[in-house]
């Protein structure tokens, strides 16, 4: 967590200043004999429970709406079945397409269906655009916490809930109806889960950027629609990216959306080198989160906060 790191450094500097200027006991918050350094480590550790709590609240917040989740899981499963039949027809006509056999193609279909909820492939999943429009964002900006980390923690909680509620059901249904492939060894499962988590983080980082654009564009529907097209096309949601020919294929596999659906699915199928794939996802997560951090700083300083 780079934010915690930054705070750590900042605190260290201020505490040193405090040490020079006054006795430690003059600080009402410092206990007797508390060395500046120990106080720092304690305060640093206290940031983590906040974000851990936010993950939990994000999970619970979404767990409140059971029937919405059931409907979502049902839809994801039914469309999974439809897509599976289409892919089966395609792979029967062209066996070995994209390096997958029929079972792998069907597996691909159900894993991608499982990604829809946790990675919010069709929508923002963030309340930020709405809060910017209503002016509620002012409250978020008053808080002594990073808006981006705050939203990320909440979003991870949401994704965790949807992974269980909308990710597992389509996979189980796919396994029961068509028989899908599954990782042979625990290491591959682990790689898949790590890749899935990285995919969720990249998806968050992207959606966060889309959400922040409201600050400049007032309305997020245009950007949202644009993002929807890019995400469905380039994440591998529509078709495996290895089906894309030539330069388009190379480009698609290098873009951030490939880190969302294609990468975890390939890790699940054992079709991609583990470390390289995770590094690819990590890079995009870092780049997009950094852009989000810059964007957050920009809205703090520049943008008119509407309403109120």
């Amino acid at each position: 967590m780079c934010h915690a790191g930054a705070r750590f450094i900042a605190l260290r500097i201020t505490d040193r200043k405090a040490d020079n200027s006054r006795l430690p006991s003059a600080d009402p918050r410092a206990g007797p004999g508390t060395a500046g350094h120990r106080a720092i480590t304690l305060r640093r550790c206290k940031t983590i429970p906040l974000y851990a709590l936010l993950v939990r609240y994000g999970f619970r917040k979404h767990a409140t709406y059971v029937w919405a989740t059931v409907a979502g899981a049902f839809t994801n499963s039914v469309f999974g079945i439809l897509r599976a039949y289409i892919l089966i027809a395609l792979w029967q006509a062209r066996p070995g397409l994209a390096g997958y056999d029929v079972t792998q193609a069907v597996t691909f279909c159900f894993i991608t269906q499982a990604c829809i909820g946790p990675m919010q492939l069709f929508g923002t999943g963030l309340t930020i655009p709405e809060r910017i429009r209503s002016g509620d964002i002012a409250l978020d900006l008053v808080r002594p916490a990073s808006l981006q980390l705050w939203s990320l923690a909440e979003d991870l909680g949401r994704a965790a809930y949807l992974f269980f509620a909308r990710g597992i059901p389509p996979m189980l249904l796919g396994a029961a109806l068509f028989g899908i492939a599954h990782p042979a060894e625990p290491g591959q499962w682990l790689a898949f889960l790590a890749g899935f988590l990285a995919g969720v983080i990249v998806s968050f980082a992207w959606r966060y950027l889309v959400a922040l654009s409201v600050c400049w564009l007032i309305d997020d529907r245009g950007v949202g629609a644009f993002s929807l097209v890019l995400t469905t096309l380039f994440s591998g949601m529509l078709l495996p990216l290895s089906l894309f020919p030539g330069i388009l294929g190379d480009l698609a596999r290098a873009l951030p959306w490939a880190a969302m659906v294609q990468a975890p699915t390939d890790l699940y199928l054992g079709k991609a080198p583990v470390l390289e794939t995770l590094a690819f996802q990590g890079c995009w997560a870092a780049v997009l989160l950094a852009a989000g951090a810059l964007g957050t700083r920009a809205i703090r300083h520049k943008v008119v906060i509407q309403g109120g």
């Binding site: 906040l50 609240y57 619970r60 917040k61 002016g135 002012a138 409250l139 109120g308």
Partner: peptide
């Protein structure tokens, strides 16, 4: 802000305080 809320809409009041 009287027209806005910092509280978590879906969770018990106590949980917002804990946060």
């Amino acid at each position: 802000f009287g027209q806005r809320t910092t509280l978590w809409w879906d969770l018990p009041l106590r949980d917002s305080f804990e946060l």
